[in-house]
Computed example of a mutant assay.
Amino acid sequence: MKLTIILAPYDSGYYHGGCGRGPDAIVAGGLVEELTLHGHDVIVVDIGEIGNEQGREISTGFAVCSAISEKITASRKDGRLPVVLCGNCLTAVGAVAGESADSIVWADQHGDLNTPETSTYGFLDGMALATVIGLCWRPMANAVPGFKPLEASRCMLVDARDLDAGERHTLEGLPILHGTCAEAPGLADRLAAAGGHRTHLHIDLDIHDPEVLQANRYAWPGGPNPDELRESMRDVAASLPVVGITISAYDPAFDAKGDVPPAVGRLLVDVLDALRKKA
């Protein structure tokens, strides 16, 4: 397959800080070589430094989304599948926009379904999926080239086990598909039946069981091991028309042995193999 690896090295408005160091670390860990070894034609592009030096989380976060949308649009014109490596989950807003996605799989230990009205901490990334489905930050999201909020019925939330009361209330009131990693393949069939023709696959690396693989500081008990996640996402990709992927939230400071980059390589190899078999 022809792939564009797009690097968005930002975390909460800061360039190459925290999880913003993850994209470069994953590439340095051999991702391109791994994908090339499996027959993929890979190019790497970086959105570079954008926004302003003050590191404003909200304005810079949405500027990153706009830059991602534009890079993906260019990638699509070249017939390449976009794979975005990013620090923040909010970046998926730009990916959905650039891909003209109409459905989404959100694999994450968090629900990311808070809004400014429900959030206890005001953490923008905790509102990422809520933004994708149009619950908040609508004027800023609508300014991202190509963005249209997705219907909640075409949203699948995988293994979100760290949910606060506000997110649980939101989930109860919306037709979002929600289940464990093991249940994801079955949920994917239901998502396909909901009418999605262009699905974005978002994977936050803290979905993993931190006792096996810790990607960042947001460790919460439980979750799949890397083999279980790979199998689940491979089956999901085999069932759905995936048009792009985001991989987010890797902070190398919490991965002393460098276990995460090769795990990402194996994950993408399996997901892309499932997509290639459908082509």
Rank of each mutant, 00 (worst) to 15 (best):
M1L: 13
I6K: 01
S12T: 14
Y15C: 12
R21F: 00
R21K: 12
A25N: 05
I26G: 00
A28I: 08
G29V: 04
E34C: 13
T36I: 10
I43R: 15
V44N: 05
V44I: 13
E49M: 07
I50K: 03
G51C: 11
N52S: 14
I58W: 01
T60Y: 00
C65G: 03
S66R: 07
I68E: 01
I68H: 00
I68C: 02
S69Y: 02
I72E: 01
S75R: 03
S75G: 12
D78S: 14
V84D: 06
L85F: 03
G87I: 08
C89I: 06
C89H: 05
T91D: 09
V93N: 01
V96I: 15
S100K: 12
A101V: 08
I104L: 12
I104Y: 00
V105L: 11
W106P: 10
W106E: 06
A107S: 15
N114Q: 07
E117D: 12
S119P: 12
S119Y: 04
Y121Q: 13
L124S: 03
M127I: 10
M127N: 07
A128D: 03
A130P: 02
I133L: 14
R138G: 01
R138N: 08
M140A: 12
N142R: 15
L150I: 15
A152V: 11
M156F: 07
L157S: 07
L157T: 08
A165K: 07
E167Q: 14
H169R: 13
L171R: 02
L174I: 13
D189Q: 12
D189K: 14
D189G: 15
L191A: 05
L191M: 11
G195M: 10
H197K: 15
T199R: 10
H200F: 12
H202D: 07
H202E: 09
I207D: 08
H208K: 06
D209F: 07
D209V: 10
P210D: 04
E211C: 10
E211T: 15
V212I: 14
A219N: 06
P221W: 03
P224I: 09
P224G: 05
L229F: 01
L229G: 06
R230G: 15
R230T: 15
A237S: 08
A238C: 06
G244Q: 11
I245K: 03
I247G: 11
P252H: 01
F254G: 09
D259G: 03
V260Y: 04
P262S: 01
L267Q: 08
V269E: 11
V271D: 02
A274W: 02
